[in-house]
Computed example of a mutant assay.
Amino acid sequence: MTDEFHKPTQFSGAKFDSFVGGEDPAQISRVAHETAGALLVRVRESADQSVVDRLVAFTDEHGIDAVAELWARASPRSLPGALWRIYLMRALVRQDAEGTAHLFQRGTEIATTIDPVVAGATAPTGPAEIIALADQILRGLFQGDFGVALDRAAAFCRVTALGAVSVADDADLTSPERASELTTRALRLSQTATEFVSCARLWRAGTLD
């Protein structure tokens, strides 16, 4: 850590698992909901593009831990929970763009649903394209249709989970530990996709808070 800013946090898949599985402590629930609601309203009402740009890049400067302090323990089916998971998804993508792009691309090659189209990544999907997709999804929370951004995030998670399962199957005999890690990641991504879908439904019903 320097005097100017926090060093962006690096973390493993195991730490992702612990974040996603967090509970919603009563003592921080009110703060989490109030900050998330106030931020979203203020930014969506602003015509200043630079505000959105700064929010998208916020964790690049301050680290994902800065967002975690506010929202990481919020219910997954809440506004702060949705914001936290989108920020975390973007941080994971940027931390391992090459690996994430590989899993996503594999998923698109075997998907039998429209999820690759809904996610909206440029094909073929390499590291630059997967980073751009993560940025677009986060930006979509503050501009345009919030529910669509959540739908895109859910589709991204499902496609990447599908790719992770496929790669895990390939590695099962030669690298069982790697296969187990990928299977766990796929389960977490699938769970997160379900949470995004629930949040999108609540948003459209006007009850996501």
Results as ranks from 00 to 15, higher is better:
99 G>R: 04
33 H>W: 13
68 A>V: 10
28 I>D: 06
117 V>G: 00
36 A>Q: 09
61 E>C: 01
71 W>I: 04
27 Q>W: 15
79 L>M: 11
201 R>V: 13
172 D>A: 14
79 L>F: 12
44 R>T: 11
171 A>P: 00
3 D>A: 07
113 T>D: 08
103 L>D: 04
98 E>N: 09
88 L>D: 08
162 L>F: 01
206 G>C: 07
106 R>A: 04
165 V>N: 01
192 T>E: 05
23 E>G: 13
108 T>K: 03
108 T>S: 13
154 A>I: 08
38 A>F: 14
131 I>N: 09
165 V>I: 11
102 H>I: 09
188 R>Q: 03
87 Y>G: 00
169 D>G: 02
172 D>M: 13
22 G>K: 08
53 D>G: 02
163 G>F: 11
131 I>A: 08
197 V>H: 06
163 G>H: 06
157 C>G: 00
152 R>Y: 11
90 R>K: 15
186 A>R: 02
152 R>A: 03
76 P>L: 04
68 A>W: 15
120 G>I: 13
46 S>R: 13
2 T>L: 05
98 E>A: 15
37 G>N: 14
51 V>C: 03
172 D>F: 14
61 E>R: 15
100 T>C: 03
209 D>P: 00
70 L>G: 00
206 G>Q: 12
161 A>L: 07
138 L>T: 10
94 R>V: 10
81 G>C: 10
45 E>C: 08
93 V>F: 11
43 V>S: 04
161 A>C: 03
197 V>M: 06
61 E>N: 10
196 F>N: 00
83 L>A: 02
69 E>V: 11
189 L>V: 05
121 A>T: 09
2 T>A: 07
9 T>S: 05
184 T>A: 13
75 S>H: 15
